[in-house]
């Protein structure tokens, strides 16, 4: 599988990353180098091998249904680059 300029543009869009037009081609080259190397995984027979979902042999922790958090609106807003009256603000989103 080979990655071209358009593919880089498409995945950059999916990742919401502004990649300058002149960087698309070189980036495609870099990614291809990496994907070509990764292709060696194709050598391994993985039929019937389960995909790993967790390296630790442990049961998922369950929390009690208690209200223990929140009430932090001020602290939540201290790092906000855009905010008004405890709301985060962004350029208007048109549905």
């Amino acid at each position: 599988m080979s990655v071209d300029k358009d593919t880089v543009r498409r995945i950059a869009k999916l990742a919401r990353l502004a990649v300058p037009e002149e960087r698309l081609e070189p980036m495609a080259g870099e990614l291809n180098g990496i994907f070509k190397w990764v292709e060696m995984l194709g050598e391994v027979k993985v039929d019937g091998v389960p995909a790993l979902t967790s390296v630790v042999a442990q049961k998922l922790k369950w929390r009690k249904d208690e209200v223990t958090d929140g009430g932090n609106a001020d602290a939540l807003m201290t790092n906000a680059p855009g905010g008004e009256d405890h709301f985060f603000t962004v350029p208007k989103v048109v549905e």
Partner: peptide, 9 residues
């Protein structure tokens, strides 16, 4: 009230 029931998570 807005953002009053929000944990950092």
């Amino acid at each position: 009230d807005p953002n009053s029931q929000v944990s950092f998570v």
